[in-house]
Every structure is written in C-alpha cells, then in structure tokens.
Write a protein that binds this DNA or RNA. Structure first.
Length: 553
RNA sequence: UGGGAUAUCGCCAAGCGGUAAGGCAGCGGGUUUUGAUCUCGCCAUUCCCAGGUUCAAAUCCUGGUAUCCCAGCCA
C-alpha cells in the first residue's frame, strides 16, 4: 500500500487489503455515483474523498457516474456543477464521465433476459394497489394477479411499454422475487416504470426508465467496479443488488459495502431541507457561505485541502455520528494558519488621535506578512496621526484580565508604536468616539526604554489611508446542534448567522486581493474577498474566527 | 420473535484473545509585538448491561438494553 503509515485505516480498507491479498481482484475500482438533482454538499465530499482516495492509495481507478434514471427530478445544470465541485476538491475521475443512461440499451436487454428466465413480469396494479399488495413490515405481501403471466406475453407487454403503447402508470415491469420476504425491497421490486419525459442525456429515446435497484448493480458490473460504496440506508438493498446480478448473464461481480453518512452539528444535510433554505430565502442561494454545500464552503473561504483533511479526520465507519463544528473549523484553521498572509482590518472602528504625532505625516512601516514564515515577505503599512482601532479594544478602565487600551495605560499597536491613552470623547449616547493618546517614538521594533512592556497588542488601520469595506460575519446557521430533529427546522434558524459590518476599514494592501484568496485579519480570524468584491466596493467573508481560549468572564 | 445494522473518553475513531492508538475539544506550564501560532504535560484499571468460556476477553459464547434504517412506479 502506501508509504504513509499514519494514514487512518477503516473497515473498507481492511476489506480491500483482504481482497487484494486473496487475489479477488487484480486492482481496485470504485465510483462516485451522484444523482444530478442538486448541489453537492460536505456529506458528498466524504463519499468523494473515500472513493477517489481509495483509488489513489491503491493505484486503482475511480469513475464519476451520474445516476440519472429519474429525468423528472434531474437537470443538466447539476451535471455541470457536480463535475466542477469534484474537480475543485482535487480529484480526477478515470476516463470519460459515465452516466447510467449510457447503459439503457443493455439494461433493457437484461430486463428481457429476466423475463425470458421467468424472473420478471409486467404488473398492472396501480400505485395504490401495489402498496396494498406489498404488505407491511410485519405482514407478508401477496402476489400480483399478473405475476404468472406467460413469458411470451410478458415479452410482448414489455415491448409495448418500451414502444409507448402503454399509459404512464398503467403498468410496470417487476422482478419476480418473493412477496413474503422480510426485506421489503425483495417483494417483487419494480424494475421499470413508464414516464413520457425528456431526458437530459437520451432526449426522447425512451419512455420507460429503469429504477435504482435494477440500474445501480448492473452499471457497477458493466464498469468493472470492484467495491461499490454507499450509505447505510442501502443495507437492505444489497439483497436485491446481489439478486439481480445473480440472475443475469454478467460475469463480473461488484460488491456493495455501506458506511454511515456524515452529520454535522448546527446544519442540515438533506437535499430537501437545503432546497427549502434556498427557495424560502433563508439564505442567498446554494452558494451562500452559510450553506454546507461545496459551493457555499468554497465561497466562505474553505479550501479543498481543508475539506479533504476533514474527511480524513472523521474516518469511515458504520456508526451513526454527529461531528462537532469544531472539527471542521480546526481543519480550516490549520490550513490557513500555515498558508495565509496576515493583514489588519478594523470592523467596528473608533478613532484614536495621537496628539504628539505630526499632523499630515504618513509613515510607511514595514510589517511581516507572516509571523513564522518569512517566505510570505513584508509589506508597507501607512501610519498616521489619526488611526482607527476596534471599539472593544478600548475601555475607560480595565481589570487585570483586560489587556487592551485603558486610560493612562499603554498598549502596543501591532507592527508600530506603543501608545498611551490620555482622555476620550463620547457621543450623546455614551459611546466612545475618539481616544486621545500619545505615542513613544522610540518603540518601533523595540520595547520602551523605561523597561516597561505593554501587556497588550491591538490591531489598527490608518484613518486617512485605510479603505472602507463591508465584512460579512458568518456564524452557524442554526441555534441547535441537530436542527433536522425539530418538527420545523426553519424555527431554529440562527437570526445572527450573518452580521454585515458595513463600516469596516481595511489596510490599503487589501484592496486588490483576488476573490477567494485567504487572509488573516490579525486577532479577528480568517477572511477572503467575496465573489462580489471589487476594488471600489470591498466585501470580505469571515471564513472562521481565530481560536479563542481566554476566559472572557 | 418482521427484517437489516450499530454500541470503545464530551465529539470522532483505532483495536480482530495477550492486558485501551490517534485526532478534535478541555485543563495546566513555557515562548510570543496576533488573548493566534508553536511547545511541554494532563485527560477511559476501562470498552451498552448481565452472565459464561479462558491462565488471559473491548475482542469468543448466551441473554438483555438502547439507537438508526426498511412498507416511493425516489435515489
């Protein structure tokens, strides 16, 4: 296998190791099989990293296959966005993109094969009757009246279905398995239904479309998939997966293995709920930075590397799980701490006037772009008599815990001088508007000569040289860890999931950062310019805050 | 007595009969011109419960308990 012994193992790797050791397959072939009916989310990322990751580590292959058997719900736009997201995540599928619809001809032939073997029949029960005949979880179902129609007649009937001579819903093709099975999916599952709808890949060639259970196993076999990985809710379906392959003339035998899907605290993962959030305008589209979609996370500033690391850290098992947000945040912090430049921005500014600093003077201070990594270089930051600091970084009087600016006390301006607060001005509402300070000219790059050392360091931006900006402060979308468990998940939306800071001011160097390029606003967190940001109208998104461990009480 | 799965630290997760890895979180110390980073240390005599087998059990057996999934012509 691989050189990196610290790579976490999992039960699927154990299975592959065993299969390889026994010579069951010469190599490993997986697939990622999304239905093109929505945007990919972080739960899909888990599956993508698993399937493509396995292929990479075992020098095997991984296909991208659109499971497009239900044209009513699918759309070509999704097949495009899904490909983009997979590529952005850093993976490359083997060969051409595959579609289940590529195999419609073969699928039809295998269905005929089943009919000829007396193992499939055309059923004329309507949807409601089908449900009644199916029985319940505890009671067996009963056979369809047409279950024993002759092979010849079934062949003719199925032909008519294909030729559009039957009405939608009038009849369907069913496998003849066992109406008394304790696996509901084995009670003569429907193989084909009639739908007179246009398909994004096959246009109007077909009016009968195969169902998932019939399609997936055969598609896997046709593509030579060795390990077909899916989520836990398909565990029962494995019986019909195997039954189909056992009863048609296909030599290769893929095997299905199930793992638990990802659940993340304070968000929802189902396509339906995600869709509700968008259509009910609780968020601004599928790529809203608060969405757990790949597109949303990307716009939020998450990197593909951080997402891959996250998928590695959470592991793959069959246990139901609920991952803490902290796990995801730790991944992006690790990445951005090492890979993003630092800069300064003041989100909620108050003015500081340095009374003993020359009026009109603009001093360019050279500041490191990264405290540990010199390869990030240095930049010039303008310092002036009037600067802006964060409102919460000044108090008239503090306590031993408060390490910021306080009247008659000193604080270090990051990358600049030590200043001492003398007095301040408030508006009619009592809000501090201006703090008057003095600075010690001899503290650039060194401590005051009197031997004192300010205990605090605060960030700042020149009032005259800084650039105005809007900063989107994003927070968790919901107020409870598991919104999906609520009767109405929209009732627990976090009203403060987005706070727009419209009076923010950023240092000039930030004016021409590319969209999506990460930067750390010192002491505040990691940010990136939004898609909509322009040099004249700067907009930044907060990706994640800095880790915050001090006792705020 | 429908069936299928799962139970190891607050959250993830290794472990596959030889005496409980690791990550995240948390807690304490050090460094620091980011209350960040980095760094050092601590953090399950115990593996859902109860019996049993064994020199030895989280791992095997028996019986319970809890949770999740299955009755779309969705995937």
């Amino acid at each position: 296998m691989a050189e990196n012994e610290t790579r976490p193992t999992n039960f699927i790797r154990n299975i592959i190791d065993k299969d390889l050791a026994e010579g069951k397959h010469p190599s490993t072939h997986t697939r990622f099989p999304p239905e093109p009916n929505g945007y990919l989310h972080i739960g899909h990322a888990k599956s993508i990293c698993l399937n493509f990751g396995l292929a990479q580590d075992y020098q095997g292959k991984c296909n991208l296959r659109f499971d497009d058997t239900n044209p009513e719900k699918e759309d070509i736009d999704y097949v495009h966005s899904i490909q983009e997201d997979v590529k952005w995540l850093g993976f490359e599928w083997d060969g051409e993109v595959c579609y289940s619809s590529n195999y419609f001809d073969q699928l039809y032939l295998y269905a005929v094969e089943l009919i000829k073997a007396g193992k499939a029949y055309v059923c004329f029960l309507n949807a409601e009757q089908t449900r009644e005949y199916r029985g319940t979880l505890k009671e067996p179902g009963k056979n369809s009246p047409t279950r024993d129609t002759s092979i010849e007649e079934n062949l003719a009937l199925f032909e008519k279905m294909k030729n559009g001579e039957m009405q939608e819903g009038e009849c369907c093709l069913r496998a003849k398995v066992d109406m008394t099975s304790s696996f509901m999916c084995m009670r003569d599952p429907i193989l084909y239904r009639i739908r007179f709808v246009h398909h994004h890949q096959t246009a109007d060639k077909w009016c009968i479309y195969p169902m998932y259970d019939f399609t997936h196993c055969i598609s896997d076999a046709i593509e030579g998939i060795t390990h077909s990985l899916c989520t836990l809710e398909f565990q029962d379906n494995r019986r019909i997966y195997d039954w189909i392959l056992d009863n048609i003339s296909l030599e290769v035998r893929p095997h299905q293995y199930e793992f638990s899907r990802l659940n993340l605290e304070y968000t929802v993962m189902s396509k339906r709920k995600l869709n509700d959030l968008v259509t009910q305008k609780h968020v601004n589209g599928w790529d809203d930075p608060r969405m757990p979609t790949i597109a949303g996370l990307r716009r939020r500033g998450y990197t593909a590397a951080a997402l891959r690391e996250f998928c590695l850290r959470i592991g793959v098992t069959k246990m139901e799980n609920m991952i803490e947000m902290g796990m995801l945040e730790a991944c992006i912090r690790d990445d951005l701490n090492a890979n993003s430049a630092r800069a300064m921005a003041v989100l909620d500014p108050i003015k500081v006037i340095i009374e003993n600093y020359p009026e009109g003077q603009v001093e360019e201070l050279m500041v490191s772009n990264h405290p540990q990594d010199e390869s990030f270089g240095k930049r010039m930051v303008p310092f002036t008599r009037e600067i802006l600091i964060e409102a919460e970084d000044f108090r008239e009087s503090g306590n031993k815990k408060y390490k910021r600016l306080v009247i008659d006390k000193s604080v270090r301006l990051r990358g600049a001088y030590v200043i001492t607060a003398k007095r301040f001005k408030q508006d009619e509402k009592g809000n501090v508007t201006t703090v008057y300070c003095t600075y010690d000219p001899n503290t650039l790059g060194k401590n005051p000569e009197d031997g004192t050392k300010p205990k605090g360091v605060i960030h700042w931006v020149s009032a005259s040289e800084g650039k105005p900006a809007t900063v989107n402060m994003y927070d968790r979308l919901f107020t409870v860890p598991n919104p999906a468990a609520e009767d109405d998940f929209t009732q627990v939306l976090n009203a403060e999931s987005l706070i727009e800071m419209k009076s923010a001011v950023v240092e000039p160097s930030l004016a021409e950062l590319d969209a999506g390029k990460a930067v750390q606003f010192e002491r505040l967190g990691y940010f990136c310019p939004d898609l909509s940001s322009t040099p004249d109208d700067l907009v930044f998104n907060r990706t994640v805050t800095l880790r915050d461990t001090w006792d705020h009480a």
